[in-house]
Amino acid sequence: MNGEISARMKVALYGLLCVLLIPFVFPTWWMLTSSLKPISDIFVFPPELFPTHPDWSSYAQVFTVQPFAQQYWNSAWIAAVVTAATLAISSMAGYAFARIRFPGANALFIVVLTGLLIPSEVTIVPLFRMFLKLGWVNTHWPLVLIPVFGAPSVFATFVMRQFFIALPAELEEAARVDGLGRFRIFRTIALPLARPALASVAIFTFLHSWNLYLEPIVFLSTPSKFTLPQALTQYTDAYGGPMWNIQLAAATLTALPVLIVFVLAQKQFVEGLAHTGLKG
């Protein structure tokens, strides 16, 4: 009897979850299917859930309208460099804040954390003036340096610090007795054990850089230097109207690597966040 009720409850629960899923899944579904439709079919009513005659030509056009491959490469290397630099800085800073006792450590950490409280819109104008003076406007430097020394890195430092705090002190003491100095303890003991936290930091840092929009539109003006979010806005016709099918094909190509990475690494991502105490 109880089993029957719980089975019904289960079905009801899954039904509810499916309904709740619609607002999250529909935009992605619409993006994917619309990229395979002729532009005239995209806004027909009632909407077609499946394209009747899938048309892949939009995907070829993505690369002819503007230098999309170059823009893809721009986004990829910037995100890779930002991720690598953030991992290096945040792991070392997080370790130092968690493990090295020095005067004012907690106060300094709070000062660092306040970096999270300042919206990027507030700092964008002074940053623009600074990079203008340095001659780095319309280069990729701002897109690398701002996240590496800005809020994403601060958040990454917080995540790494929380992880290293939870690492048993006896492991480090054993390593000290085994003859290791501070940096080697970090490199050979602490860092390999921090893989879940590093994975989550890598994923959200990569995503943040990949999706960065405000900074590219402020600092970049040459299409060959654009990154993907900025490039997506450029698929317009002569009258400024969007070329929906091509734009959605470009959007699909933009989202694809992120989806793949997240699906492959979601377990480590969640594990890493669990160590930070950010997840209940």
Partner: peptide, 13 residues
Amino acid sequence: IAMVFQNYALYPH
């Protein structure tokens, strides 16, 4: 010196 710790402190990886 060599030390044996209460929680063993073996390197898990």
